[in-house]
């Protein structure tokens, strides 16, 4: 039997950039129905993503990103992440994420109070994205490299 490949090739692309393209040892992905980890030799798998924190590890070094809605495909030790947006945790501005969260929360409150013309689905998506960015940020702060 041939030797099993231990590493994964990871691609993270968004409409604006090709964020990550490298060999990694492990990836943790926020899937639509729960987070999951990927190591070499994973079974083929396709899922949609929910906004959350994606981490990957190269040797002893782990990296942390916030991702929003999208898809993940895993085929023969290749991981492709298609996300609407993605941001490296170290580049996330806590203040901006906080204010995005407040805006979205306020819009949802208004909608609940019966204010007209609010796209609830969009506000909920914005809130989820803001929370994901905050989580990625705090995870980074706890675990600096």
């Amino acid at each position: 039997m041939e030797e099993k490949k231990e590493t994964l090739s990871l691609d993270i692309v968004t409409p604006d950039e090709h964020l990550v393209y490298q060999e990694v040892d492990e990836v943790n992905v926020p899937g639509a129905e729960g987070d999951f980890g990927v190591l070499g030799g994973h079974t083929p798998f396709l899922t949609s993503l929910r906004p959350g924190v994606l981490t990957y590890r190269v040797a002893e070094q782990s990296h942390c990103l916030a991702v929003s809605e999208g898809f993940a495909e895993i085929v023969s030790d290749r991981v492709i992440i298609l996300a609407q947006t993605s941001e490296d945790a170290s580049k996330i501005s806590k203040d901006r994420a906080e204010s995005a969260k407040e805006r979205a929360t306020k819009r949802l409150d208004d909608a609940r109070k019966g204010v007209e013309g609010i796209d609830t689905a969009r506000a909920e998506a914005a809130l989820a994205r803001a929370l994901a960015r905050l989580r990625a940020h705090s995870q980074k702060a706890r675990d600096p490299e």
Binding site: P15, G31, A32, E33, T43, P44, F45, L46, T47, S48, F71, V75, S76
Partner: peptide
């Protein structure tokens, strides 16, 4: 030869395909 392998889908295959096709068309237009 690898496409015969059983795939896992989350959520269901149909839901994923619909969502993916819709986004694909949107992105091609973009």
């Amino acid at each position: 030869d690898e496409s015969v392998v059983d795939y896992l889908y989350e959520p269901s295959e149909e839901a994923l395909l619909d969502k993916l096709l819709k986004q694909h068309v949107e992105f091609q237009v973009y």
